[in-house]
Design a binder for these strands. Sequence first.
DNA 1: AGGCATGTTACAGG
DNA 2: ACCTGTAACATGCC
Length: 287
Amino acid sequence: MPELPEIEIVKRSLFKMINKAKIIGIKINNKNLRYKIPNTFSNELINEKILRISRRSKYLILHLKRKLLLIHLGMSGKILLMRARDAAIFKTSFYYNVDKTSKHNHIYFTLNNGFILIYNDVRRFGFFKLFYNIDLNKIPFIKKLGPEPFSKSFNKKYFKNFIKNKIKNIKNLLMDQKFVSGLGNIYVNEILYMCKINPLKSCKNLSSGEIGQLIINTRAVLKFSISKGGSSIRDFKNTLGKTGKFQQFFHVYSMENKNCSRISCKGKIKKMFISKRSSFYCNKCQK
DNA sequence: AGGCATGTTACAGG
DNA sequence: ACCTGTAACATGCC
C-alpha cells in the first residue's frame, strides 16, 4: 500500500477538490473488497455531505453528519477523481471493462460539484467501512494504533519505554503499527539507512543517540517524500492518476547491488528478508 | 513457472 | 493475557 506519505497526498487532493461536496450518486461494481460492502451501503451514503477529510496513519476518513467513512487502500488501492464531463466523453472505457485498469474500478461516487470519485484496486485488499455515531479514536481499526510519527507523543521517552522487555529487531519495531503508525516497508528501509542502523539490530541495544536519530529521520524521510508527491513503485497514483517522485530518491529500497550513495562509503546495498519482507541496507555503513 | 509485490489480520504456539 | 511468527487474502508482473 501506499504508506503514510501516499495517503497524505491523496488526502490533500481530496480536501482541495471534494471537501464540502455532496454525494449524489453511488455505483458499486464489486462489493468484494477486504470486507464485503453491505447492501445498505449506497442508501446510507446518498445525499450525504462530506464535511471534513482527514488521515490517521494509512487510513483516510470522510467525515459525514454523524457518520464516518473509513477507507484503507490496502496494497494497490487508488482513488481517482474525474470531472463528470470527461467521464462522459470516455464513457465506454469508464463504465465498461474495455481497458485493462478500469475493470478494477469497484466504487463510483458522483458528487454535486462535477466530480466523480472512483475507487480502483487490483488486489482488493483495501476497504470502505461506514461507522455511525462514533468517535474516530474509538473505531476498532484506529484505537489500537500507536502515535503518528509527527506527533509530540512520539518522543524518546515513549520510545525507550515501549522497547523495555521487547526482543524485536529495529526493523520490525518500526513496522509495528502499535509502536508508531503509518510506516511501511519502503520508508522503514530508508529511515534505517539514514540512521546508519542495521535492520536486524535488537531494539534493546539502541543507544539514546540512535533513538533520537530514528525519530528525527522518520520525520525527515516522510516529510521529504510528501514534498515529492509520495513514492510510486508499481501501484501508487494520486487522484489525478499521476505517479509520485520519491522513488527517484530511494537510497536503499529496491537498490540491491548498487553502490552506497554516501560518497565516502564504499559499501554496496544488500538485500535480505526479515519476517518475509525484503530489506535493503548498506553492508558498510549499516553494520 | 514460480517468486515477489507499498498491508493487515486471524491463528497457532510459546 | 501477552508475545512472536506464519499463512492467507487476489491479481499482475518479471
